[in-house]
Nucleic acid binder design. Structure first.
Length: 434
RNA sequence: UCCCCGGUAGCUCAAUGGUAGAGCAUUCGGCUGUUAACCGAAGGGUUGCAAGUUCGAGUCUUGCCCGGGGAGCCA
């Protein structure tokens, strides 16, 4: 017989089981106790009747404190009065560690403020909603890996310590690298996996990414996780199709395996059921028309603001892809549109409901001469990019890829307002503890 | 970096310039089907820090510290 977990309680109906976990909350009613236990997979109510257990067990149960660790023995019984439909009729209880009453667990079952909860992040993650979010994050990551692994992609992780800016735009975390001068924490693995893609065809990297910008919004972390696929012999259309398939796969997997978590998070799953191909594809020009109809004054050539993206995403009931932005608003390595060179062959995928960009990607410049020109235009150090230029010297091909932000994706699927809750230990401008 | 909001009990919040209070948590008592259980009682305070105005400051003024929301930037 497999080991008992709360998530699988229904399978153990009528059986004697051992629950290893922690006390989540305790309700008392005279000679009846209703301790609620959690074991990491969920929360389950137990029933303790004074008449049915030894005085020692009764004493241990009545003096349990919140988050004390326990091993509880009992039989699983279906009862519609129990949250979740099943309860544990307790007949024995071992206390592994009792939380002392003079130093009670700080997070009571009532409401708390963000500042306090973030300072108690190491404990806050035990709560029902937070642990559901972390299980959801796990499922999203597992879905991403399965998607790429089963579609012929090779995992080739990029370095986290890098000698120079990947894109030369955003602010980087700097550190001393022995005698070789300054090094930086990566802001993207893209340039490196362009190399591995030329070696292996279809590749991806998946790791943490660092941005030292003093961003202070619900959509930003200074340390976040990004998965970046890169494909040789790929066009912008291929990339849009891949992004659409990836996001569809992630959402379907979560719906298939994490219904209880979505329920805990009170997510309206009907909106997620809509996430099937095709996603609407909107050119930058058409996006601008849409914004101008709503009174926006945004001139052609400017990048869309967060508010603009929110407005556009609200026009659709599933993610929307905006493609072919003005080249001057985008990164130096993006391939120009051969029909309109002032446009870049790039695309962003915007999640619904204002969650912002979850994907940003492009076809890369494959011409040596054009790439060199762009490096010079952007005042980037040619020496540092020689290896990158080599990729255009030796068998250059049309290629491209994109990055998908894990935390924004989880926040959108979970329907929560701030991405800081989608990672175990968020790193933000004014917070690095715990 | 800029704009806005906030800081009072362990937590969430009250308190016309006039004796700092409630709910939860904790402790004790009651209750055999509780649903963030409920009922009764007790303990718990350098009102973020510093200075100023005033007979009197949690409240008004100034400075500083620490958070939160947003802008820019991006995933």
């Amino acid at each position: 017989m497999s080991e008992f977990t709360i998530a699988q309680a229904a399978r153990f109906q009528g059986q004697q089981v051992t629950l290893r976990g922690w006390l989540y909350n305790l309700r008392e009613s005279g000679k009846l106790l209703f301790p609620q236990f959690r074991d990491g997979t969920g929360i389950m109510q137990a029933v303790v009747s004074k008449a049915d257990v030894s005085s020692e067990v009764w004493e241990r149960a009545t003096t349990l404190t919140q988050e004390s660790s326990v091993i509880a023995h009992g039989t699983v019984r279906a009862d519609k009065r129990a949250p979740g439909g099943y309860e544990l009729v307790l007949n024995d209880l071992t206390v592994v560690q009792r939380v002392p009453t003079d130093q009670p667990y700080p997070i009571s079952p009532k409401e708390h403020g963000v500042d306090f909860l973030m300072s108690q992040r190491h404990l806050w993650m035990r709560s029902a909603k937070q642990s559901a979010l972390l299980r959801l994050r796990h499922e999203v990551i597992a879905a991403i890996r399965d998607f790429f692994d089963s579609n012929g992609f090779i995992l080739t992780d990029a370095p986290i310590l890098t000698p120079a800016a990947c894109e030369g735009t955003t602010t980087l975390f700097e550190l001393d690298y022995f005698d070789l001068g300054p090094a930086y924490l990566t802001q993207s693995g893209q340039l490196y996996i362009e190399a591995t893609a030329a070696a292996l065809g279809k590749v991806y990297c998946f790791g943490p990414t660092f941005r030292a910008e003093k961003s202070k919004t619900r959509r930003h972390l200074t340390e976040f996780w990004m998965v970046e696929p890169e494909l040789s012999f790929a066009t912008l259309d291929d990339l849009m199709k891949l992004g659409e398939d990836l996001v569809t796969h992630i959402v379907a997997r979560v719906l298939e395996r994490r219904r209880p978590e979505l329920e805990t998070l009170e997510r309206d799953t009907s909106k997620l059921e809509n996430v099937r191909p095709p996603f609407h594809r909107l050119s930058y020009d058409d996006a601008l028309k849409l914004l101008h109809q709503k009174g926006s004054q945004l001139p052609w050539g400017e990048d869309l603001s967060g508010a603009d993206e929110t407005f556009i995403s609200q026009q659709f009931d599933k993610p929307v892809i905006v493609h072919r932005y003005p080249a001057k608003a985008k990164a130096f390595y993006m391939e120009p549109d051969p029909e309109r060179p002032e446009l870049a062959l790039c695309m962003d995928m915007l999640a619904p409901d204002g969650y912002g960009e979850i994907i940003g990607g492009s076809q890369r410049i494959d011409s040596y001469d054009l790439l060199l020109k762009r490096l010079r235009e952007n005042n980037l150090p040619e020496d540092a990019f020689q290896w990158y230029l080599d990729l255009r010297r030796y068998g250059s091909v049309p290629h491209g890829g994109f990055g998908l932000g894990v935390e924004r994706t989880v926040a959108w699927i979970a329907g929560i307002s701030h991405i800081r809750e989608t990672i175990p230990f968020p790193r933000m401008i004014y917070r690095i503890y715990p």
